[in-house]
Design a protein around this nucleic acid. Structure first.
Length: 259
DNA sequence: ATGTCTCAGGGACTGAGA
């Protein structure tokens, strides 16, 4: 089976691209971020017509996360447990596979804006709360995948110009430490389980012809619990949708599991 | 290069967020 994540930067704008992508890439589950719409506007029917059930935690204008899947999504929960948050950044659901249940956690980490800002502080507090929640989830299951836009480039090799980005937002030491805390829960970066091309990224700024010049960062990730890591046979960034007209600034990331 | 894109308010453009 295949699972994927894609920050679409407005599902209202990008729904046709999502449907086109799913037609070519019929993944078993797709996590979306930055849907930027309320639950009542979410296109459940259009996605169902394409063969996907969907669950959504949305809000007007900003944020918003969704999970699409070819079969039933159950035990759906929204938000980070114990963290009072008006921003819709987390949705969790269970998907049944031939070899048992798979817990899918779809996430949109805060951007943080600038190191030292209030939004940066919120990002670090949000990540600490997420880590606590996942520790509890992992006590209940050994088949958990955390997929989404983490807004963190974990290492210098995930950055087109590490010197320019040193200690900047998305690359700062505290953000990278928080990312490592997630790995220390027993999660594994699916992308790094395999040999990858140099300068592989998942996001490119719309400005400065960032994509054409490959001025990117790898900030969209799929983290797998130990059991799922042992079943993972591939992980790639699909740059195809980033080449379309009116693209999202992010590309999808896909992992293949022998489940 | 304060560079691009999306959204909301209000009804043309500006500001916020990324």
């Amino acid at each position: 089976m295949k699972i994927a994540t894609w920050n679409v930067n407005s599902l209202r704008v990008r729904l046709p691209q999502v449907l086109d992508w799913l037609a070519v890439n019929p993944v078993d589950a797709l996590c979306l971020q930055e849907t930027k719409q309320e639950d009542c506007a979410f296109p459940h029917a259009e996605l169902a017509a394409a063969g996907y059930q969907s669950v959504h935690a949305g809000q007007k204008t900003y944020n918003g996360v969704a999970i699409l899947a070819r079969s039933e999504l159950r035990e759906v929960s929204r938000g980070v447990a114990g963290f009072d948050d008006h921003q819709q950044r987390l949705i969790t659901a269970t998907l049944d596979t031939a070899q048992g249940p798979l817990r899918l956690v779809c996430t949109y980490f805060p951007n943080g804006q600038e190191v030292g800002s209030d939004k940066y502080d919120y990002k670090l507090r949000w990540m600490a709360a997420l880590t606590d929640t996942l520790r509890q989830e992992l006590a209940n299951t050994d088949r958990l995948a955390l997929l989404g836009d983490f807004n963190i480039a974990p290492e210098d090799r995930d950055v087109h110009d590490p010197a320019a980005w040193k200690d900047k937002i998305l690359c700062s030491v505290p953000e990278r430490s928080a990312f490592r805390q997630l790995l220390e829960l027993g999660l594994n970066d699916a992308f790094r389980l395999f040999e990858q091309p140099e300068k592989s990224f998942s996001w490119w700024d719309y400005r400065m012809m960032g994509f054409r010049r490959n001025l990117g960062l790898r900030i969209d990730h799929i983290l797998l619990s130990q059991n799922l890591k042992d079943h993972c046979v591939g992980c790639q960034v699909d740059k195809t949708p980033r080449r379309l007209e009116r693209p999202s600034d992010h590309a999808p990331v896909v992992a293949e599991l022998t489940l």
